[in-house]
Design a protein around this nucleic acid. Structure first.
Lengths: 111, 111
DNA sequence: TGACAATATGCCAGATATGACATATTGTGT
DNA sequence: ACACAATATGTCATATCTGGCATATTGTCA
């Protein structure tokens, strides 16, 4: 996102919610960050499940280890688009993606 | 996605539908196209509901009428990213987005 | 501890996406 | 039919993303 636009988008009265950011993000920007985070986690889960290395996953995706690391870290230089395309390339369905966007929350106090 | 393939897509003159795959799209590419289509439709629905014009929506989004038209048309030059950010900017939640990705299908033969 | 594998971070050139403009097409009144 | 609004399509300069390389950090095992 453009820095200039970021300024334009500054909205008043934004209460910091959860883990997203204590930076000057607009609600929409924060939501975008969180959405990417969900996808990041889904990707890492996928890899973890198969006991693949980032290098191995990168090869499968036609990308590089460093980019995979950034994808999983929710790095700002990684778009939601790349995450989506990666998940789809790994066989995820729209449904899979939809559910990774609406994670079940554990009950408070649960392990 | 490769530009060459994208060009082929353009050349084929898409009609909105659900099957993106009479071209040589890989399953992942087809899934990506369909996912974008779902988001496109959600965006158009949003605008339609508020009886806004594309120009009006563009203004609200800090974009242009032509790009909005392309967004709603699922144009290949529009990324899922832009669609997501637009929906979020309009106040959609992750949940909203997730459900637009898993549309309820009508029974066959229904109107 | 050292040696090695895995992951993370910084950077950049080439690839892709975006806003904006011009223009064409379609729709909707009369 | 005409006039006008809305939407669609083509193009392009600039902004942004991405793969890949180099390097740093962290983790693991002996």
């Amino acid at each position: 996102m453009k820095a200039t636009k970021r300024t334009k988008l500054q909205a008043a009265g934004w209460a910091v919610g959860d883990a997203a950011n204590f930076l000057d993000l607009s609600p929409a920007e924060a939501a975008y960050v969180e959405l990417k985070l969900s996808l990041s986690q889904a990707l890492r889960r996928w890899r973890s499940t198969r006991k693949l290395t980032q290098t191995g996953l990168a090869k499968r995706l036609g990308s590089s280890q460093s980019r995979v690391a950034k994808m999983e870290a929710g790095d700002p230089t990684v778009s939601a688009d790349l995450l989506l395309r990666s998940l789809l390339a790994l066989g995820a369905t729209s449904k899979d993606i939809a559910s990774s966007l609406t994670p079940q929350r554990r009950k408070a106090g649960a392990t």
